[in-house]
């Protein structure tokens, strides 16, 4: 086996890394969330729960949080609706084209997030590709404004960006289903549709849960898409955190919101893991 020194040599650097760049900032943030800002814009290092009270007292924070959750929920649903059939087709129907199509799904992940978000801007803008096309075919005679700078644009962009993240775990779980189970189901008289409902779907639930968790958690905390495409009505909770740490200069409140989010996300991850365990049978 490994010697003590060797084990220390390979485990201590990553532990230090995590402690220094993750745990320490979190600890600092946690402290900040109990401090306050003086009228002269100085941090007051005395402990208070006021930031957390503020979070529940001022409507805009909770409203934005709920809007963010609603956007994340829609992104999750649309990503599943797109990702599941795609994964199903690739796993069961694509045959020899499987590897090629898989690469096609993965390639967008190599393209910068910013580029993809900007791409939607050029598509959805009032002089953008979509509006020009709609006017050209006379479906409308003036540019549609709800397309850009709206929750719609945010949901669309986030769905586009996070669908591969939903696709991947679903695809993996479908690939893990032994094919003789499908044959056994047909053998026992189940039609392809019955087989899907009774065998394929239940066995792919862990992948669906993992994919849904990815899409929900990643889009809940997203701030670039709402910043670039959301407009005033598409603001999400991260935009508020960013402004509290920036222009508004209220780090303590920003830290309190961040911690609230962190607890929410950890709770979700925990729940999703429990559910995934419950639905895995090997």
């Amino acid at each position: 086996m490994f010697s003590r020194a060797y084990r220390a040599a390979i485990t201590i650097p990553p532990l230090l890394w995590v402690a220094l760049f993750l745990l320490l900032p979190y600890a600092l943030l946690f402290c900040y969330s109990f401090w306050s800002v003086s009228p002269a814009q100085a941090i007051v290092h005395s402990w208070t729960l006021n930031n957390y009270r503020e979070l529940f007292r001022v409507n805009v924070y909770l409203q934005t949080l709920f809007r963010s959750m609603w956007i994340a929920a829609r992104v999750t649903i649309f990503s599943l609706l797109l990702g599941y059939p795609l994964a199903y087709y690739l796993s069961f129907g694509a045959g020899a084209r499987k590897d090629f199509l898989y690469q096609l799904v993965i390639i967008p992940l190599w393209v910068s997030y910013l580029v993809r978000a900007y791409a939607w801007k050029t598509i959805l803008g009032s002089g953008g590709v979509l509006n020009t096309l709609l006017q050209y075919v006379h479906l409308t005679n003036h540019p549609l404004n709800f397309l850009l700078y709206s929750p719609f644009a945010v949901v669309l962009t986030l769905t586009h960006i996070y669908t591969p993240f939903t696709f991947l775990p679903i695809f993996a779980s479908l690939e893990h289903i032994p094919r003789n189970l499908i044959e056994a189901s047909h053998d026992l008289g189940a039609s392809p549709l019955q087989t899907f409902w009774r065998v394929v779907l239940p066995l792919s639930i862990p992948g669906v849960l993992a994919g849904a968790t990815f899409a929900f958690v990643l889009s809940l905390g997203d701030f670039l898409a709402p910043l670039l495409l959301g407009g005033p009505s598409g603001i999400m909770i991260s935009n508020i955190v960013v402004s509290l740490f920036g222009a508004a200069y209220n780090w303590p409140l920003g830290a309190a919101i961040s911690f609230g989010m962190l607890v929410l996300v950890i709770g979700l991850l925990f729940l999703s893991e429990r559910l995934e365990k419950k639905w895995s049978f090997r």
């Binding site: 032994p178 003789n180 189970l181 044959e183 056994a184 189901s185 047909h186 053998d187 026992l188 008289g189 189940a190 039609s191 065998v199 239940p202 066995l203 639905w279 049978f281 090997r282």
Partner: peptide, 20 residues
């Protein structure tokens, strides 16, 4: 006929029991 319309049943080599 597709397999699900045949009055034939199979015992598979590795049993293929539904794990769920």
């Amino acid at each position: 006929l597709p397999p699900y319309r045949r009055r034939v049943n199979t015992v598979f080599q590795h049993y293929a029991l539904f794990p769920h």
